[in-house]
Amino acid sequence: MTVQLDFLKNVLYFSGLDLAEIESIDKLVFEKSAERGEMVLLEGESATDLYFVASGAVKVFKTSAEGKEQILSIVRPGESFNDVSIFDGGPNPASARAMGPVLLYGIKKNDIEAILRNHPRVVLNVINVLASRVRHLVSLVEDLSFKHVIGRVAKILFEQVGGGQMGRGPRLTQQEMAAMAGTAREVVGRSLKALEEEGAIKVDRNRIVITDKEALKRVMEVSS
């Protein structure tokens, strides 16, 4: 069995298909490589291919008019991206960038349609994938819209240094801050950038220094 065939067998899209079915799909798959930092998809452009990450990782994100980045997801081996524009025919809703050297397996939109017609099981699998995607995005919308995460991250930082009484607090990863703020790691990353832009903190490699305690408190109050 080829590496590609073996990979496709374990992709959620093609779960439950027999070997003959996977082999027929395998013929429609093409390879695409991308180097670290290379843009694989650009938000707003039209896309014609669905991609599966075979090796490496891809960051899917949106960029604001001011250039701020919000990560929507990190796509790991076996997972797909660009599903939405393939199925609704619209432009790419987000950009995608290779986080390192990446190998992708792509399928053209027309071929996907043929696969769906010929293999009804794939339709159910796709619904499953898209439903999970919607659930993840709804959770992200909730975090970004209602939770005032920036204020909570500010509060966490403030409390870690004992409200200014202690010079140095315990060490926390972004994942731990996310768990404490009840949000996703992606949102913490953006909150830290926003706090740095406010002049409240300075991120220096693995150190977060509260440079303006009053500014940090203002963010806590405004966002509470």
Binding site: R168, R205, T211
Partner: peptide, 23 residues
């Protein structure tokens, strides 16, 4: 300390903790 390694790790095996201090 870009923390990309921590972000991509699906099992939580890598940690990039930040030291938090005040000036």
């Amino acid at each position: 300390w870009c923390t990309d390694c921590e972000a991509v790790c699906a099992t939580g095996a890598i940690s990039c903790p930040f030291e938090i201090s005040i000036e």
